[in-house]
Simulated assay, not measured.
Amino acid sequence: MFETLKIIHFLSLAVGIGGGAANGIIGARMAAAPDAAKPVLGGITGLIGRLSAGALALLWITGIALVLMTGGFAAMPTFFWVKLAFVVVLTLVSIRLQMLSIRAARSGTPPPMRTMAQLGRFASVNSILIVVFAVVAFTA
């Protein structure tokens, strides 16, 4: 069971980080895309964003389960808590991105591209820091 949870955790990490990278590339291309292509590209980024948000939810579920199976939160090293702080920030950014996307879909207008790009870059840096602190926390 532990190994299965760990596999799901790592695959979810790949989907989340890969989705963020893909959306960054698509978003950058969208600015120069013809007007007719923008709704199609926006639909793709929305789908990838929802998949990434789902992956983040799975990371929370599997992460908590893994912690509980390895001695609980009290047994976690200091760098785990640093990593967890970045996970909380990433989760809040992800919620904000989803809210902007939902609001845009309901109004029939694209979300604010500049804000989406800034939040996306922030989330990418945050994700890298999460991986760095996870490695430090669990390989010491």
Rank of each mutant, 00 (worst) to 15 (best):
L68V: 15
F122T: 13
V135C: 10
R103M: 00
T139D: 05
F10V: 13
T91L: 01
T115Y: 07
R114Y: 11
G20Y: 04
S124Y: 12
S52D: 08
T70F: 11
V15G: 02
G63S: 01
V88Q: 04
V135R: 12
G16Y: 12
A74K: 12
A14V: 15
A140E: 13
A36L: 13
G20K: 02
A105M: 12
F10P: 03
A75G: 04
L5R: 06
N23W: 05
R29T: 13
I17N: 05
V131E: 04
T109V: 12
I7D: 09
G63H: 06
N23Q: 08
M69Y: 14
A65I: 09
P39R: 00
V88W: 04
K38G: 01
D35K: 12
P110L: 08
R96P: 02
T45H: 12
V15P: 03
F2C: 12
I130W: 04
A33T: 01
F79Y: 15
G108S: 06
S94Y: 02
I95N: 03
L59Q: 11
I8Q: 04
V40D: 13
L97T: 06
G42Y: 05
A57F: 13
G108M: 09
V88E: 09
A57N: 10
A31F: 06
A85S: 13
I7V: 14
R96A: 09
S124A: 15
A37D: 15
V87F: 00
V125S: 01
G108F: 08
L97R: 08
L119Q: 06
T78Y: 11
A14Y: 13
L5H: 05
I48N: 10
F122S: 10
G42N: 07
A65P: 02
G49V: 03
T4G: 13
A65F: 11
M99C: 02
V131I: 14
I25Q: 12
A140W: 13
A123I: 04
A14F: 15
A37P: 07
T45R: 14
M99D: 10
M113H: 15
I64K: 10
V15C: 05
T115F: 05
A137N: 00
I130R: 02
H9E: 04
I130A: 04
G120D: 09
R96T: 08
A65Y: 08
N126S: 09
F133V: 07
M113L: 14
F10C: 08
E3T: 14
R121Y: 14
M30P: 04
L5Q: 08
P39Q: 05
S101R: 13
R50I: 11
A117M: 07
A32T: 08
I8R: 03
V132P: 02
V82D: 04
T70I: 11
L92V: 02
G43Y: 01
R106P: 03
A55N: 05
I128S: 03
T109S: 10
A33G: 01
V87I: 12
A105P: 11
V67D: 11
R106K: 10
L100K: 00
G72N: 03
A75Y: 02
P39M: 06
V135P: 08
L100A: 02
G20W: 05
V93Q: 06
A32L: 07
V40R: 15
G120E: 07
K83L: 02
G42E: 03
S94V: 00
V132R: 03
R121C: 10
A33K: 00
L5T: 06
I95C: 01
V135L: 14
S124E: 11
I61G: 05
G42L: 09
A21W: 10
A33M: 02
G20C: 01
V136C: 01
I128Q: 00
I61H: 07
